[in-house]
């Protein structure tokens, strides 16, 4: 089982005719994703990797019944594109694009809450449902052919790959790996993604991959303490990050005493999470948890 995405989900690729959109469409199709349409305004009528391209989201939805969309559009076009996508009725959107202006993200976030859509990003690697489908850029070859029962949700992209791969190697295979986006303001909160794993009967436990900066982990810790019914493993990257330094994307910065690794770890520990101090430790904790709870894989 999985959350959000399975092999039947009809997926639309926006920005499909760009270099990255095209390459990633090929990887997504090879992994088994049911890609039904692409959209690039002005390029309607062509075909990319065997996928028909439309000028507008509405035309793509009408012709193919697309129900989820992944964005490889330029940062400056993301907000406008998102409004078009929501208006066409799509309720699951993955914004892979980096460097989206934060004022745009704030506006999109308010719209997301209003529409009830699930929006991931910006700066997210997307979703990978092991053995079934992927929306975004998570490499499929890090995972075995069939999914297990561990949910993974990560702020960072590359670290999601590493921890997902470590879990698989430990024999505790992920079912769905979700990147929530690495920007300081994201479209959906960590706690909202945890809710989906809580409701999924096949998810035995969840691994959170966090990082220094922002307050997502702290907010999620409150939710976990209050009502999350499953065990949680957490790794928070950035112990050796000097204060006030921006580490790559804007999310990773400790400022005003908020967002430190120590603060996040303390909040999650209080909420009952098992804390890994390195990525490799996630594998050890997962193995132990799988044995003690009697759940296999």
């Amino acid at each position: 089982m999985s959350i959000l995405l399975n092999r039947r989900t009809r997926v639309l690729v926006q920005g499909i005719t760009g270099k990255i959109g095209q390459a990633q469409t090929r990887w997504m199709k090879e992994y088994g994703t049911n890609i039904v349409a692409g959209v690039t305004p002005g390029r309607g009528g062509v075909s990319v990797e065997g996928v028909p391209v439309f000028d507008s989201v509405r035309a793509a939805v009408t012709a193919t019944g697309a129900e989820a969309s992944v964005f490889f559009v330029p940062a400056r076009a993301v907000k406008d594109t998102l409004f078009e996508t929501l208006e066409a009725g799509i309720r699951l959107v993955v914004v892979v694009t980096e460097h989206v202006p934060v004022h745009d993200t704030m506006e999109m976030r308010a719209e997301a809450k209003k529409s009830g859509a699930m929006l991931l990003g910006p700066t997210t690697p997307g979703i990978l449902t092991v053995g079934e489908a992927k929306m975004g850029i998570i490499p499929g070859n890090l995972f075995p052919p069939a999914g297990g029962s561990v949910g993974v949700v990560s702020r960072s992209g590359t670290l999601a790959y590493e921890v997902g791969g470590i879990l698989a190697k430990a024999g505790t295979v992920p079912n769905t790996v979700v990147g929530m986006g690495a920007d300081p303001v994201v479209l959906t909160d960590l706690a909202d993604i945890l809710r989906l794993f809580a409701a999924d009967p096949e998810t035995a436990f969840v691994t959170i991959v966090g990082e220094v900066g922002g307050v997502q982990e702290e907010m999620a810790a409150e939710y976990i303490a209050r009502e999350f019914p499953k065990p949680v493993i957490a790794y928070i990257a950035g112990r050796n990050t000097p204060e006030g330094k921006r580490m790559g994307h804007a999310g990773a910065i400790v400022q005003r005493g908020m967002g430190s690794v120590a603060g996040k770890v303390a909040a999650l520990e209080r909420a009952g999470a098992h804390i890994a101090h390195t990525p490799a430790e996630v594998g050890e904790l997962a193995r132990r948890l799988a044995c003690s709870s009697g759940s296999s894989r």
Binding site: L159, V212, A237, G238, H249, A252, H277
Partner: peptide, 14 residues
């Protein structure tokens, strides 16, 4: 090749 991975690398190297 990523900020999260870079920070984790610093954690482990450190």
């Amino acid at each position: 090749s990523g900020a999260g991975l870079g920070m984790a690398t610093m954690d482990v190297v450190g």
